[in-house]
Amino acid sequence: MNTKDALIKYCTRLADNNLILGQRLAEWCSRGPILEEDLAMTNISLDLFGEAESIYEYISTLTDNHLSADDIAFLRSEREYSNTLLVELPNGDFAYTMAKQFLYASFAKLLYTSLLNSNDETLKGLSEKALKEVKYHIRHSSEWLIRFGNGTSESKTRVQNALNDIWKYTDDMFEMDEVDNELISTGIAFDLKDIYTQWNFSVSEILKEAKLTKPSNGLSIKGGYKGIHTEHLGHILTEMQYLQRAHPGAKW
């Protein structure tokens, strides 16, 4: 695989993670447990959409097919999406959503930090920008995990069950293939094995503080980067792409 194709695929994975997680979070709009949390989740969603848009715009400068950022977001089908599985999981209750947010934001923070050393200037700039926003996301979800874990037996049980359920999808974030290998060899991206080690450490630290048990590694479900998704992604796209599918080319 040549470097340019690998870069396009790599960026698509990253942007799809942001877009799909942003869309999931937006489902909380007007349904948050309290007004402040409704605002928090939609604000984080907005950050993720913004980050996705910047990356899709970069992708459209790399390809010759004249697709705009909107085309890439709204006109691809399920198998063409390459987000990691965790971000497409349904929201569940508030504890479940916060557990997802925490596990993903911990990954995103480390990934963007590594990309500050990328020799692709655009990817480096995008990461520098995103990192400032991800810091709010990780603080927000970490605090909630600690509150739930040290709260009532109900809150502790719910967040522990959420972690136990989500854990099998976390390995998928660290999957690597020829795309990663090409970009690692050219100094554009970095080995996700190293990021996994750091992620494991930082997640463990917060779980300790939250008095929660880190689930053991057992079953692991993978395939997001290859376009093999859970049954949930199709439903997300059905809602998200409805307008562009029903009224092609409609502008806001």
Partner: peptide
């Protein structure tokens, strides 16, 4: 602090 997030991305409540 009421919320780390406010009416616009740049503000907290």
């Amino acid at each position: 602090l009421t919320s780390q997030f406010g009416s616009t991305p740049c503000k907290s409540l």
